[in-house]
Nucleic acid binder design. Structure first.
Lengths: 217, 217, 217, 217
DNA sequence: AATGAATGAGATTTCATTCAT
DNA sequence: AATGAATGAAATCTCATTCAT
């Protein structure tokens, strides 16, 4: 709907720096999401942005910097979206549910950003592990906090069958995996998607809280 | 003890083709796992393999082919490992549990293969989606079959709160995510890891089967 | 105390043209002396000068012109310094001695200018040979005149063992070489430096004048 | 007369590495001597060498390495030439004379090498000071040793009017300067050139040894 | 008078790929 | 069967220079 840099922005001239920077970042996210860090070329970024290469280097630095700035911006956006979606005054399960919905809405509305964050950032030899893992870690911590708060509230101790962080990791992985799946099945609403996960995870989690345990055999 | 291609294999001469091919593939997996598809160089592969570049091209084709063959071989190995681990005569939950353990054992024993399959193959812009997604799909289908068989056995229809494939996707994602997490927390046994997932997923799944449902509010 | 262009001159505005030109030239000499003609960048010059690049082009022309103007200004300064130092009414040896002292004083006080003149101007493939060689030639001619005047005064003809111009060239080379050496041994006074040269050259020269000659064997 | 890489060597194919390396170095010396380090382009080197750029990088490394190797090779050659020319069993003055002649012969026969060593290597911001200064220092030390040996042999102490190292520096500078001058006056023989210098320097030096001194006024 | 914004052109360097032996 | 030698093509990045305000 809004102009997100899909088409070369008509090669407008003499824009203020902030605007150009946004244009370039938009283009870069697009290109990186399509090809990944290494296969993306600065030439394509400059084409898509409708700006000559020297501007990119002048404003955003070398390719690595550019990528890092993409990651940084989109990570901040995603986190902000989730944070706004969660309502801290609600009970844990509702917080989780709203958070998931916000996450899926973001993925739906910013497919490219999500692709860059989820797929492309992993491949660059730990070079950008910092940026992305920080995001992931924050997400996991957030979930872990919810889980633990819910758990302790209901008297769940530290059991062999359960590990807060690991559970959070698994949940985040499941959520991400579903997000990817969703990209190819867009006919499901974000609410349904979130419900599925809640039904899978929350019910199981509640069983644990109540002392039910699955054991081999 | 086992030759994993760590050291250049002493530049032996006149080996039968099959052996050379294995040498090269081993080296390629190693190099791709370290740098990813694009950043990996054929020069490094040839160095690590202790084989000249023309041999690589003669035996395994261009870089793309080489990568595809890496993916193919490791995917087959992983699938084989899981298939061998699962005992089809057991009840679904035990099948799932054994499958997960086999999966984690494979990851532990073939970190490089897992890295190539999980991380590096994603970045190449859908070029190798075929190879990897096929594997993933087979894994998901396998899980989905288990889930559905268990579900139908207990009379669960197609409810709004539930989707077999999506459940499988989520489960696979959770398993993968935990695998990654495990790489940094190697002091947990594969059995424990698998148990965590079972407790998270299976219990929740059972609730669904029994008609329990989580709903917002 | 003196403004040597060390710090960006605070980006003052609306200065008269002559002042701006001096600012820019000072900066340019500094930058050229640090990096040489090719490695110097107009960006750095503009930064150091505290003036935008378009001003440089407007006032002093393209990079080549700028360099030529640097050379020209510093060459004129050096010549002026030497000319002022020499007292034409003195006998040749004293003229030479005072000239050398003036030269070394200039080098000490304008290291950057000297660097640009001596080192950087040589590398630009004869492009600025004109400017610099003119200076050098004037210096050599000046010395040669002294030498010849002293020689003819004492009846020295054109001998095989002697060539006025060549002697001058050698003397100038020795003086330059000592100047460079001096940059790393600043604890010697300009008088001492000049004395060394006089003792080396003048004595030898006098011997020649008197008919003494060194011959192989 | 001999093929020194003047013309592209007919693009011969599949030469052994050592030969190619020599070809490339020859071309590089030529190009660097024409344009200096910065203005020289790897493209031109590759053209002149009759070899594609990748070969240059494969065999001799990046531009900096290439330049350093040029300097290194030519410095070694020059030193070798001088060393061979000097006959250590002769008295100091004859050693100096033969050394100078050898030096001028080298300059005459390897103008390009001399240009690279003398002019171009100075401009590269001290980056190659190591290589070149080492050479210069060795030359100066060699001269200084001669001077000192001659001086002490005749009882000259450390006087204010005299400094061994400084004298050597001056002499080397004079020799270099004459070498440059010679490039434009090739009708003088190397013997004559060397004689001039000997007459200028050695006589003056002998005066000093004998206690004669020039003093201002 | 002065400059932020902008770029065409060209530099170095790397890589996948193939001959010729 | 095996490889050292070789390259076309393309990537990243920089710089001198100018426009539009």
């Amino acid at each position: 709907m809004t102009d997100d840099g899909q088409r070369p922005p008509a090669r407008t001239r003499r824009l203020p720096r902030a605007v150009r920077e946004r244009q370039i970042l938009d283009a870069a996210v697009q290109v990186f999401s399509r090809h990944g860090y290494h296969a993306a070329s600065m030439d394509e970024v400059s084409d898509v942005a409708g700006v000559s290469k020297p501007m990119i280097y002048a404003y955003l630095g070398a390719k690595e910097d550019l990528f890092a700035k993409c990651i940084g911006r989109e990570a901040a956006r995603l986190l902000e979206a989730v944070r706004t979606g969660v309502h801290a005054e609600l009970p844990p399960d509702m917080q989780l549910w709203h958070g998931l919905r916000a996450f899926y809405r973001f993925v739906a509305e910013h497919r490219e950003a999500w692709t860059v964050l989820h797929r492309q950032a992993l491949t660059v030899g730990g070079q950008f592990a910092g940026e992305v893992n920080a995001l992931r870690k924050r997400a996991i911590d957030l979930v872990a906090a919810l889980v633990v708060s819910a758990g302790t509230r209901q008297g769940l101790g530290e059991a062999a069958e359960f590990s807060g962080p690991a559970l959070a990791v698994a949940l985040v992985g499941a959520a991400e995996s579903l997000a990817d799946w969703w990209l190819d099945h867009p006919d499901v609403s974000d609410g349904v998607l979130a419900s599925w996960l809640m039904n899978l995870v929350w019910l199981g989690f509640n069983d644990l809280v109540e002392g039910k345990v699955w054991r081999p055999q």
